[in-house]
C-alpha cells in the first residue's frame, strides 16, 4: 500500500515538476496576455516565442519587471533550475543579508536552505535535477513497458491461442530473444544511434524486455482457451480477434501485470545504469543516472550529496515497483495465497 502511494506521489511530482522547482513562472501576465512559460520544461516549443523575441535569455524575474512594469507572475515553490547555475541577483525575493547567493560550485555545494540537496560541481541545483528527473524515471518505466507489454502480450496471446505451428515458431522466437544478453544488445543498439535521446532508450529497453511478459501471457492463454466461455463465444460467432482481445485477454491480464510491474522497475534501473555509464541521454538532461554519474566523477571531492540523493531516488523507485509486483504476485498466485493463510 505504501509502495502504491509512493508511486502515485512520484507521478504527481513528475507531472508538477515545473511547478515545484524551476526558474520559469507557472503563470505570468506579460504585456496584457497570460502565458505559461513553465511548460517549456516539458517541451521547449511550448514556451511562448515572445520570451525569446524579447531577449529574456531564460532569466524571468528581472526581465519581466524591466520589460513590463505591470506584469505579475506565479512562481514555482522553489526558485532553482535543473539545467543551469542560478545567480545571486536573479531572484528578488532572496534576503539580501546572505553573503554568497550564487549557487556554489566545485565541492562547496553542500545541502543548504537554498539548495536542499546541494549543488553539482557546476552549480546546478541537485534538488531541481532530482525533481525534474522523476519525469524521465516515470516516462521510461511506462513507455518502455508499454512497448514491451504490447509486443509481449501480442506474441504470447497469438502463441497461446492458436497453438500448432504458430506456437512453435513464436516460442522459439521468445527463446532466442531470451538468450541474447540484454545489456550487450542494448549497448550495441545504442551505439548504432548517433545521438541517442531518452526516447531511443525507452524504445530499446521496450523491444528487449518483452520475453517474460510473452511467456506468461502464452501460459495463461493456453489455460484459458479451454474454458467454456471461450467455446461459447466461438459458438456465438465471435471472431478470433474479438475472443483474444475482449474475452480472454481481460481474464489473463491480472497475472500478466506481475512481470510488467517488475519490468517497470527493471526499465528504470537499466535507464539509470545506462545514463550512469554515459550511454544514456546526453548530460544536460536531468536524469537520476546522470547525476549519479557526476557523483562518481567527483567522488574524491567528497560530494556525498551527489551520490546519496540520486542513489536513494533510484533505489526507492525500484523498491516500490518491486513491492507492487510482489503484492500482485501474492494476489494472483493461488499457491502463494494459500501460504498466507
Amino acid at each position: 500500500m505504501v509502495a502504491l502511494v509512493t508511486i502515485v506521489l512520484l507521478f504527481l511530482v513528475a507531472l508538477c515538476s515545473p511547478a515545484i522547482v524551476g526558474t520559469k513562472p507557472i503563470v505570468c501576465n506579460y504585456k496584457g496576455n497570460l502565458y505559461f512559460p513553465c511548460l517549456g520544461y516539458f517541451n521547449p516549443k511550448w514556451e511562448n516565442p515572445i520570451f525569446i523575441k524579447d531577449k529574456f535569455r531564460g532569466v524571468y524575474p528581472r526581465s519581466l519587471k524591466q520589460k513590463d512594469a505591470e506584469s505579475w507572475a506565479v512562481w514555482p515553490l522553489v526558485y532553482q533550475d535543473p539545467y543551469r547555475r542560478v545567480k545571486a541577483d536573479e531572484w528578488h525575493g532572496v534576503p539580501s543579508s546572505r553573503e554568497m547567493l550564487d549557487n556554489p560550485v566545485q565541492n562547496h555545494g553542500k545541502p543548504s536552505a537554498h539548495n536542499f540537496f546541494g549543488t553539482t560541481p557546476y552549480g546546478v541545483d541537485v534538488f531541481a535535477g532530482m525533481v525534474h528527473g522523476t519525469r524521465i524515471a516515470v516516462l521510461v518505466g511506462f513507455v518502455s513497458m508499454g512497448i514491451a507489454s504490447f509486443i509481449g502480450i501480442t506474441i504470447g496471446a497469438l502463441a497461446g491461442y492458436f497453438r500448432g505451428w504458430i506456437d512453435v515458431v513464436l516460442s522459439r522466437l521468445i527463446e532466442v530473444v531470451m538468450c541474447i544478453p540484454t545489456l550487450v544488445l542494448i549497448l550495441a543498439l545504442i551505439s548504432v544511434i548517433a545521438e541517442p535521446t531518452v526516447w531511443h532508450l525507452m524504445a530499446i529497453i521496450g523491444v528487449t524486455s518483452w520475453t517474460s511478459i510473452a511467456r506468461l501471457t502464452r501460459a495463461e492463454f493456453l489455460k484459458l482457451r479451454e474454458m467454456d466461455y471461450v467455446a461459447a463465444a466461438r459458438a456465438l460467432g465471435a471472431s478470433h480477434v474479438r475472443i483474444i482481445f475482449i474475452h480472454v485477454l481481460r481474464n489473463a491480464l491480472a497475472p500478466v501485470l506481475v512481470p510488467i510491474s517488475f519490468g517497470v522497475a527493471a526499465a528504470i534501473l537499466i535507464e539509470s545504469a545506462l545514463s550512469f555509464l554515459g550511454f544514456g541521454a546526453p548530460p544536460p538532461n536531468p536524469s537520476w543516472g546522470n547525476l549519479l554519474h557526476l557523483g562518481q566523477d567527483h567522488i574524491l571531492g567528497k560530494m556525498w550529496w551527489l551520490v546519496l540523493f540520486p542513489g536513494l531516488g533510484i533505489f526507492l523507485t525500484v523498491l516500490c515497483y518491486n513491492l507492487v509486483g510482489e503484492g500482485l504476485q501474492e494476489a494472483t498466485d493461488p499457491r502463494l495465497r494459500q501460504a498466507g493463510k
Partner: peptide, 23 residues
C-alpha cells in the same frame, strides 16, 4: 533482504566506495 534486492548494484557500489574508500 528485499531492500537489498532492490538496491541497484551500481548505487550500492557507489555508496560502498564513498563510505569505505573516500571517507
Amino acid at each position: 533482504l528485499f531492500m537489498l534486492y532492490s538496491l541497484p548494484s551500481f548505487c550500492g557500489a557507489l555508496f560502498l566506495q564513498l563510505w569505505f574508500a573516500v571517507y
